[in-house]
Each structure stands twice: as C-alpha cells, then as structure tokens.
Design a binder for these strands. Structure first.
Lengths: 129, 129
DNA sequence: CTGTATCCGTTAGGATACTG
DNA sequence: CAGTATCCTAACGGATACAG
C-alpha cells in the first residue's frame, strides 16, 4: 500500500513511518543543541584538551557549566576523559571516533548557515577579550 | 606564522580564528535545537502543510507551541506562509529552498545518530495513540 | 480553521563559594 | 589544577481559554 494514497488526516501513518527517524534526530539535537556543547566539542577536536584551556577559550563560561557540558559529552561518548594521577592533577579530554564523525556533520550545518543565514539573522556576537 | 607554533594558552588565536564558524553554528543550532522544530520542518517537507494536519501528526503538541514554532520557521525563512483568504480561512506552510537544504543536513545528523547513539542513549519514546 | 493571550511549572544556564 | 555544591533567574514548553 502506497503511503501517498492514504489520506493524511485519517491515520498516523507518517508518524508511525518516521517515528524512528524523528526520535533519533531528537536525541541528536538534544545533545548538541545545548549551549556551549558544539563549541567545546570542536575545541577538543582542535587539541584543546584540558579544563583550564577550554575555559579560557570559551570566554565567559562558568566552571559548573563547563563541567556539566564535559560530563554530558563523556556520557554521550563523544569525548573520553583521561585522568593522570599526579600532582597537580591532570585531566585530558579526547574526542572519540563517534565525536569526530559528528563534527563533520556539524561542519555541514555550519556551511549551511554561512550560505543561508549568516547575513540574515543577526545575533549578538560573542565578545573576545 | 603557523597557528600550531603558538602556545595554546598564550592567546585567543583559536577563538579569533574560528569565531565566525562558532557564531554561525550557534545560530543554526539555536534555530533547529528547540523542541518540535525539526519535526515540523520535516513534516512540511513531506507535504503536511496545514496547521491542523501538523497538529494531529505531532501527537500532543499544544496550539501555542505549534504556532510559535511555525512563526520561528517563517522568521528564519525555512518555510513560507501562504494565506488563502476564504471561508473558512486556509493557510499553508511550504518549505523554502533554504529549508530543504537544511533538511538534507538534518538527515545526515539523523544518520549519525542511528549509527552512533541509537542503541546507546535511550530516551523515553514518543507515544503514538 | 488558524491561530493568540495568559498563566504556570520545569529546566537550562550562570554567579559564587568551596573541595580534593 | 579540576572540578562540585548551592543558589538564583530567565527562558522554555505546555494547558487552557479565547479570538479573527
């Protein structure tokens, strides 16, 4: 039975059919749609691996916010946490294969943005220094 | 001067360098990262063009929420609103070229999700019916 | 039919202080 | 150095009633 033959408002065919995709896309956007997440991931990809370095790159982020973002990235397996038990304590965050793949798609999102919204929708720029 | 030769924590070189990209990506995620937005856009792409049809496909969404999502999509020029002044009033939302391009990238996000998180990070599924 | 207005609880995000 | 705990506020998402 072809889907296009069914009346749109008689069933939830489209819903049922695309539920898996909708759900998956929601999960992805739930992760990367939060503030700072994409930026932290990209910085880690660029070998900014440590809490203090990330903090100074992310002008204005609070300790607890950066902490929760990193925890969420680890929990989602986009980055791995490596702890060096020495004095002083040293911790590094490394991007995973999964995370790396994601940054590729994020880069495409960015390209889309540069093409379609860069000069249409203005937001207050993040101030450096 | 090569960027890799500069000390990471001595300057904000990386910030300055990627500020444009960071800002653009944030804009994009700010738009599509909100709840329902991606789903509404995809439904419109699939020719679910009217308020009432969208509402019944998006099991459980409130009137005001759907309304604000649609307004935001129009404001961001991802969809166009077409009003037919007749009785009863009829309105259609059509995806723009820009919106269509975006759904392609969203589809890649979805593919990434299916590959990397579908069976790792479980969320409560949206219940149909 | 296609919305807007209002209210309201939850959550996200940030300032600050403190800890191993 | 690398965080956590606490508190606070603003924004988000949703229920409901009403309007063009």
């Amino acid at each position: 039975m072809s889907m296009t033959k069914k009346k749109v408002n008689s069933t939830n065919t489209l819903n049922e059919f695309y539920l898996e995709e909708r759900c998956t896309l929601n999960k992805v956007l739930k992760i990367i749609g939060k503030r700072w997440v994409s930026e932290v991931l990209v910085l880690i990809k660029q070998d900014i691996l440590r809490f203090s370095n990330l903090k100074e790159c992310l002008n204005g982020i609070s300790d607890n916010v950066l902490s929760s973002v990193l925890n969420e990235l680890v929990r989602s397996k986009l980055v791995e946490k490596k702890i060096f038990y020495q004095v002083p304590l040293k911790v590094e965050y490394h991007i995973t294969h999964s995370g790396l793949e994601l940054t590729r798609v994020m880069h495409e999102l960015c390209d889309w943005g540069k093409e379609h919204i860069a000069y249409e929708i203005r937001m207050k720029p993040t101030v450096i220094k």
